[in-house]
């Protein structure tokens, strides 16, 4: 009887201990697991409704992503949630994260279905493929590639993004609202030439195009010169 009670107590203690110390959560040792803080907003699932603002980052050029991560961290591109997340990250880790997202091959969702009046579409197409030499506005395609899928290594693609995001970025370059327009940069100079009507037309038209094709290899000589600070921005700031 005594033994029975003791054994009972022993078993009870074991169970109690087991209940007190649950197994640690099993965490995969992968970069995908480490960037969950990113994918909660930049995830694979369709977030077109509520979270339309968050741009797709999968498959973007590594150099572009790396630059943006450092701009957010160092205050050259302002978005508070990104700045807080990246505050204490090394360049090396940011480069690895950029590589990870650049290497993701996820099919693009179908483009936004937006009704664009023909005049607005024509305005956008002209700016995209011909620009406006009188105002020194180059064609978007001159830098962002004939397919508008970007140019190695730093120029982003323009397709597969939501119109809200595109309009906000162009508006930021235009007015300096995202700090971006306040620093010397060829994109700020170009966007400052655009009217709000043109920015709207571009954002809608670009968001309505299906994303396909490849990034271009290099900028044309003239644009490489005009946007030489892109390479400077790539310098280490700390």
């Amino acid at each position: 009887m005594k033994y029975f009670i003791l054994t009972g107590l022993f078993l009870f203690t074991c169970f109690a201990e087991a209940a007190e110390a649950p197994q640690p959560v099993d965490v995969p040792n992968t970069l995908a697991e480490r960037v969950k803080a990113c994918t909660i907003c930049h995830g694979e699932e369709d977030k077109a409704s509520r979270d339309a603002y968050y741009p797709r980052i999968a498959g973007k050029l590594e150099g572009y992503l790396y630059n943006q991560l450092r701009h957010f961290r160092d205050g050259r591109r302002y978005y508070q949630p990104m700045a807080i997340l990246l505050e204490n990250m090394s360049d090396t880790y940011l480069r690895e994260i950029a590589q990870y997202f650049a290497g993701l091959e996820i099919p693009y969702p179908p483009p936004e279905s937006i009704v664009i009046p023909p005049a607005q579409a024509a305005l956008a197409e002209k700016l995209v493929y011909s620009g406006d030499p009188e105002r020194e506005v180059p064609a978007c395609s001159a830098c962002h590639g004939q397919d508008l899928m970007g140019t190695e290594p730093f120029v982003p693609g323009l397709l597969g993004l939501h119109s809200t995001y595109l309009a906000a970025q162009l508006g930021g370059w235009h007015s300096g609202g995202l700090i971006r327009g306040k620093i010397a940069n060829c994109m700020a100079d170009i966007a400052k030439q655009l009217t709000y009507e043109e920015i709207n037309a571009l954002a809608k038209w670009l968001a309505a195009q299906p994303a396909s094709g490849e990034p271009a290899n290099a900028l044309p000589a003239e644009m490489a010169q005009r946007c030489a600070n892109l390479a400077l921005e790539n310098g280490d700031s700390r």
Binding site: V27, R34, V35, K36, C38, C41, P81, T92, Y93
Partner: peptide, 12 residues
């Protein structure tokens, strides 16, 4: 060198 992170929930 490669810490794990906590997502921001202020938008969620």
């Amino acid at each position: 060198p490669q810490p794990y992170g906590m997502p921001p929930f202020q938008q969620i």
